[in-house]
Design a protein around this nucleic acid. Structure first.
Lengths: 197, 197
DNA sequence: CCGAGATCGTACCGATCGGTTCGATCTTGG
DNA sequence: CCAAGATCGAACCGATCGGTACGATCTCGG
């Protein structure tokens, strides 16, 4: 029971608890795969509380997606930072982190892509686009620091490998998807920079 | 009006007409984005007819997805065949065809991936997996004929580029997505074989 | 020319959907 | 100790969902 009756008194605490618990449920079941009633039951929260905090089911969905996008991007960024200065190491850190995600039993593909595929609401699609923006920025940064002739282009190709690996892992075969993508990404690194695989 | 009342008398004709008309509608609106009633109205067909031919909405969905998967895979395969013997040309043909698809105003990403993202039914996921199997087979064939050391691995990396490019084109930016993916794919070709870009 | 059967249009079914309302309960600040 | 307000649980709302039933209409093979 994440929200113990009216004990919290702090609304922002309740909101955060709802957000945190709703995220994995909506990810597992799909945005339209669970109704508000069952969702509230799983959250241990009444409908009135949910609607006061988020106004609409779509409001909750957007809040969940935005929080998740931020969290995932931060997680990947930290993996890169922890990898040190070597650009190949940074790239490897990205795809190793992704592979760890693919191997998680609850892995069901990118939540933002799934959401955009089912919900045709424009705001959801915008969140997904911004999410990919974040990825692109991270990857382009690596490409730029690696001295790529065209960091934008290389970052975009890496983004395709990241998303492609995620799609393949989710819908075809997860074994070694991250490693295959990593090798491909490293092969695109300017050969003048750093040792390769 | 694709099905002119009871004039056809040939049930298989009716079935084919429903399939053909339902495909773009379900692609545009999403599988759960349109109800059976409105769908039938758009098809110019009564509910009874639809249910006699497909039994269930899921039955129609599966038939539509299978037909579309076959059609798309055949389309890509023919593009490769038409490209001649050169492996780089064959690869280029794939990504050029994809770019033409991305530029189509009705492009909304891969229908099979979208379906698998919304519908958690196992049969739909299976159709998607088989669809990716078809792509992988096509790409692995090119890799093998190109003399790749590990055609399976190279085919899989190309598959990631194909799916990644499609995802990026659908949810981020379609301009030049096919070209970027094509350059990356060509860069992964064994340098001993054929001229590159 | 008649009977089989494909189709239509519409009404209908129970279930579920997102969302609202309300009285009761609980916690906390003043 | 009381008023403010956050929360609960359950009832309730109209709309829509997937699916069924039925009588009328149409076409075609025999």
């Amino acid at each position: 029971m994440p929200v113990p009756k009216g004990s919290t008194i702090d609304p922002s605490r309740t909101r955060a608890a709802i957000l945190e618990t709703a995220t994995p449920v909506l990810y597992e079941r799909g945005l339209d795969g669970i109704g508000v009633a069952e969702l509230c039951a799983r959250l241990g929260v009444s409908k009135e509380t949910l609607y006061r905090h988020f106004g609409t089911k779509d409001g909750l969905v957007q809040a969940v997606l935005e929080a998740r996008s931020e969290r995932v991007t931060r997680w990947l960024t930290e993996a890169v930072t922890a990898a040190g200065q070597d650009h190949a190491d940074q790239l490897t850190a990205v795809f190793d982190a992704l592979q760890r995600w693919y191997d998680d039993p609850v892995f069901r593909g990118c939540a933002m892509l799934n959401a955009a595929a089912q919900h045709h609401v424009e705001t959801v699609r915008a969140i997904t686009a911004r999410h990919l923006d974040g990825y692109l920025e991270l990857l382009t940064g690596i490409a730029r620091r690696a001295g790529a002739a065209d960091p934008q282009a290389l970052g975009r190709q890496w983004l395709m490998l990241v998303e492609g690996a995620t799609v393949v892992a989710a819908h075809h075969d997860a074994t070694g998807a991250g490693e295959h993508a990593r090798r491909a990404a490293l092969a695109l690194l300017p050969t003048t920079v750093g040792p390769q695989d």
